[in-house]
Write a protein that binds this DNA or RNA. Structure first.
Length: 432
RNA sequence: UCCAGCGUGGCUCAACUGGCAGAGCGUCCGGCUGUUAACCGGAUGGUUGGGGGUUCGAGUCCCUCCGCUGGAGCCA
């Protein structure tokens, strides 16, 4: 008797195995039961035929319900009728726990409110498990990408003082006698400090935005990967982003073909994602949108609909660079050729998935940074340590942040980022 | 926060212009030795989100509250 994972059964033909898992679905034709089993590694159909020797077992199996946890024993048989090519001829079965109630999710016709209310159980379904497996692959690949390039992982703090872009859209918490503290919206400023020690650094973790955003692209708590590179400028920054995104897409194509197929992704839209990506300046983008009939003027923000139009002509993500200084954060390096714009870029995913990366070269001269902080009406005192980074061996440096759930949504072809994270925190939902 | 929409059995939805609350799925019982969202027969299941109003009569119209969905702004 071999204890086996379902995913390994194809290599165990004719062996007697034990599988520990759950009953995903059950059908019966009177004298033959079909038990669809899952164990986290895959699905397999267990077949139990009534015969003189197993009447008690056959009768007991009738009492099982969907999501019964159970340990089964049987012989692995090749069968062309089975989806995975193999079946289990069951010889024995122990129910660990038989549910007293019906499993709430049993047909693919539930509404999204109901599914989110039952998210803790919804993730047991194949499609949701496949999405979470792809997410895992993406996170694993991100770490591998940086590790291959000798970047150092630096875990930036989740609780911060009143530093950041503006405290208005931060979650406030009480920090003992210190007073108010905030949940991090970004680890960037800390990565800037770390890259002056370690050269090339990255982080990967949750961030929080107390914005009442209510769209298919927004979560209150989302995961972000940020990178920061010393002695790197705008061009090298974009180059690294293109490599990273291409690396992720190709790794998922390579490692998760079954999962992508089961979530219904059109793979042709993910192939040939290799550097370089199409590129456009903000000014070009505005002229392009004006030709398409949008009423945007230079200096306006580019909204969701505009982003979709900009990206739709391309198979690869599009890089939009050099936005107006007034519309971007204070720390971005002005373009030496045109001080009205800054050396920054966004990367827009194809098919309307929107901004997946925001990036910039950072101001490295203290005097320029002080001037910008004052122009933006921010408090110099609260940027004390950030300014000190420019007092001790300051160098040109650049970095970016990539939204994990948006990348997962794009690669999986999801309608909404809430399925791209195990337990989404959205504007009006914090349960389960 | 603003704009729009939705709320009817456990789930997904019908119900004309205000006139007897229905179907499919699930569940339960019975049948079926190759089912894949199995199938066939029967049964079960309702304070139409809460409150108030108009009306002979409200699931339907009005007010209000609650919940949810989509979008906007902001962003990744």
């Amino acid at each position: 008797m071999i204890r086996a994972s379902i995913s390994d059964l194809a290599d165990l033909l004719s062996h007697e195995v034990e599988v520990r898992g759950w009953l995903a679905r059950m059908r019966s034709s009177g004298k033959i039961h079909f038990l669809q089993l899952r164990d986290g590694s895959g699905f397999v159909q267990g077949v139990l035929e009534l015969n003189a020797a197993n009447e008690d077992l056959f009768e007991a199996a009738k009492k099982l319900r969907i999501e019964t946890s159970l340990i089964v024993r049987g012989v692995v048989k090749e069968d062309k009728r089975a989806p995975g090519g193999v079946e289990l001829q069951l010889t024995d079965l122990d129910a660990v726990q038989v549910p007293e109630k019906d499993f709430p999710i049993n047909k693919p016709d539930h509404g999204i409110d109901y599914l989110m209310e039952n998210r803790h159980l919804w993730i047991r379904t194949k499609r949701q498990a496949d999405i979470l497996r792809i997410r895992h692959e993406i996170l694993k690949t991100i770490r591998q990408f940086y590790d291959d390039r000798a970047f150092t992982l630096v875990d930036t703090p989740i609780i911060t003082g009143s530093i950041g872009e503006s405290a208005g859209n931060c979650f406030e918490i009480d920090y003992f006698d210190y007073g108010k503290a905030y949940l991090a919206q970004t680890g960037q400023l800390y990565l800037e400090a770390a890259c002056m020690s370690l050269g090339n650094v990255y982080n990967l973790g949750p961030t929080f935005r107390a914005e009442k955003s209510k769209t298919r692209r927004h979560l209150i708590e989302f995961w972000m990967n940020e990178a920061e590179m010393a002695y790197h400028g705008h061009e090298e920054n974009i180059g690294l982003q293109e490599e990273l995104v291409s690396f992720i897409v190709n790794a998922v194509l390579e490692e998760c073909p079954d999962e992508l197929a089961s979530v219904g992704r059109d793979l042709s839209r993910l192939q040939n994602i290799v550097p370089p990506f199409p590129r456009m300046s903000y000014s070009e983008a505005v002229r392009f949108l004006q030709k398409k009939g949008f009423s945007v003027n230079w200096g306006d923000d580019i909204g969701g609909d505009e982003e979709t139009v900009l990206a739709e002509g391309f198979e690869k993500p599009v890089v939009i660079e050099r936005y107006p200084a007034s519309s971007k954060a204070f720390y971005m390096q002005p373009d030496p050729d045109d001080e009205t714009v800054v050396l920054c870029n966004d990367m827009l995913a194809p098919e309307g998935y929107g901004e997946i990366i925001g990036a910039s070269e950072r101001i490295f001269e203290k005097a320029t940074l002080v001037r910008k902080i004052e122009e933006f009406g921010l408090d110099l005192e609260s940027y004390k340590w950030y300014l000190e980074l420019r007092e001790f061996g300051t160098v040109q440096h650049s970095g970016f942040g990539m939204g994990i759930e948006r990348v997962v949504s794009w690669i999986c072809g999801l309608e909404h980022v809430r399925e791209a994270i195990p337990f989404a925190r959205t504007l009006y939902r914090i349960y389960p």
